[in-house]
Design a protein around this nucleic acid. Structure first.
Length: 473
DNA sequence: AGGAGCTTGGA
DNA sequence: CCAAGCTCC
């Protein structure tokens, strides 16, 4: 008996058509494919910027599918209930998806899989979000890696299957289920700051991501070793926002990086390493999901982190008016573009957790609300790395001096000039865009004087070191 | 993926 | 006087 019932392709954070194992398998079956996105509790819970960015991505994926004679069906509600409805109305006999690794997704997907199978519906999960499934990377003693370098040594030589082509045909079902209208979901509604300011900075969709990967490999990767540390330069891949939603796959990036390495491009290996850091973050989240909301090194529970979000110093940090140019530039870049250069992320995180002695969770939450490239694993690992509470973290006493960092990584002041308008005769458009992006109630104007430092850098440093010296663990 | 303070060995 | 090296946080 040949089963020609439709397969539901349940899209989540894999919003592309190329190198998509689940979609490829569905198309190769010869059965009709129903692409579906479900706006459920988990996408509802996203921060403002990630939700806004997801809305854009869904629109783009819908268009791409329509170009191929297919559709993206949008439904809202509990994932399992929606799947059952769609199965009911279309006679679908299978649901395919790409695996996710955060605990909430794992819980949901496990329950969905069990229930569907109990009801005689085929439920198949595929790889695609990662190159190395977290349970396939083990130390010699059978544990998981807690330090990046040995993790890197364990994975760098692995075969990563060649990327899959875009399916030439996505067979349509005889009748399409109903779909919600994306506009009705208003996924940009929570963007307090100007979404129109952020929008031009978004690199949206699969085609744009591929184009960026190409130009990165052609022009940037050669000098990536140094350029990636210079926030004033276009020296990174800047593909995080696309990787986050699966508009490009890590496998595609990996193979491009391997080719660049064979061509002798100097920075190629460093790029591969950065891709491995992303895998490592997922590896850690899978094996220790508490990394998402608790000190990974539990003894840090006893550290006197300040958890009061209402402190004026915290507000100044959030609003990019600490009076420390590197910190403020980076925080304003976040407001305007929804992204932040990695050097900036390290500096603002070090400043918040050390000079201001704030709990890293406060910064983590702020990023979760504002980053259009937000990723649960990377964000948690990054913050705990900077704070010193994480696995393979920077020691707490390693405190970045944001002014010294300026001389090392923004020597020509391109970056700080780009983002800070106050005190300048003719601020550029991007520096001014910050004042359009931020909520009006912040009461900031480009005519203001640039603020004095809220905390003296050496006093802040000494205060943090004192706390570290006096810790009782 | 640091910084600061100090020593040392050479201009 | 200063860069490089070392140590501690």
């Amino acid at each position: 008996m040949s089963d020609n019932s439709p397969i539901i392709m349940w899209f989540r954070r894999d919003l592309r058509l190329s190198d998509h194992p689940a979609l490829t398998a569905a198309c190769q079956s010869g059965r009709p494919v129903i692409p579906l996105f479900i706006h459920d509790a988990q996408s509802e819970a996203l921060g403002a910027a990630p939700k806004f960015r997801l809305g854009l991505a869904l629109g783009c994926l819908g268009e791409t599918l329509a170009d191929k004679g297919s559709r993206l069906i949008l439904r809202r509600g509990d994932a399992l209930e929606v799947l059952r409805e769609v199965i009911e109305t279309t006679g679908a006999g299978a649901v395919y998806w790409s695996r996710l690794y955060d605990p909430a997704a794992i819980d949901r997907d496990t329950k969905v899989k069990e229930t569907l199978k109990d009801n005689g519906v085929e439920a198949c999960s595929f790889a695609g979000h990662l190159m190395f499934e977290p349970w396939t990377v083990e130390t010699k003693t059978g544990g998981f890696y807690k330090v990046f370098t040995p993790y890197w040594k364990a994975v760098r030589g692995r075969d990563v299957a060649a990327p899959l082509a875009t399916p030439s045909d996505i067979p349509a079902p005889p009748n399409w289920p109903e779909s919600a209208a994306l506009d009705d979901w208003q996924m940009d509604a929570e963007m307090q700051r100007g979404r129109d300011v952020v929008r031009p900075y978004v690199r949206l969709g699969e085609a744009a991501a591929q184009a960026r990967l190409g130009s990165f490999m052609a022009h940037i990767v050669e000098g990536y070793d140094e350029s990636r540390d210079m926030p004033g330069e276009d020296g990174t891949s800047a593909l995080s926002e696309n990787l986050s939603l699966g508009e490009i796959s890590p496998t595609q990036c990996w193979h491009a990086g391997q080719r660049a390495m064979q061509e002798g491009k100097r920075g190629a290996e460093t790029f591969l390493k950065e891709l491995a850091w992303r895998e490592f973050a997922y590896h850690l989240m899978y094996h220790t999901p508490r990394i998402l909301d608790q000190n990974w090194r539990e003894e840090w529970q006893a550290f006197p982190w300040n958890e009061d979000e209402r402190r004026v110093e915290v507000l100044a940090w959030k609003q990019g008016r600490t009076g420390v140019p590197f910190v403020d530039a980076a925080m304003r870049e976040l407001q305007v573009t929804g992204r932040m250069h990695n050097r900036g992320r390290m500096i603002v995180a070090s400043y918040l957790t050390k000079h201001l002695m704030c709990h890293w969770r406060i910064g983590q939450k702020w990023f979760e609300e504002h980053l259009i490239d937000w990723d649960p694993a990377n964000n948690a690992m990054g913050w705990q790395w900077a704070a010193g509470s994480g696995p393979d973290a920077t020691p707490f006493f390693r405190i970045f001096n944001p002014d010294t960092q300026l001389d090392r990584f923004d020597k020509g002041r391109d970056y700080t000039r780009r983002w800070i308008a106050e005190g300048r005769a003719k601020p550029g458009d991007e520096a001014l865009a910050y004042f359009d992006a931020i909520p009006r109630r912040w009461g900031r104007s480009p005519e203001d004087d640039y603020p004095d430092p809220i905390v003296d850098l050496s006093e802040g440093r000494e205060r943090a070191l004192d706390a570290y010296r006096n810790r009782d663990f």
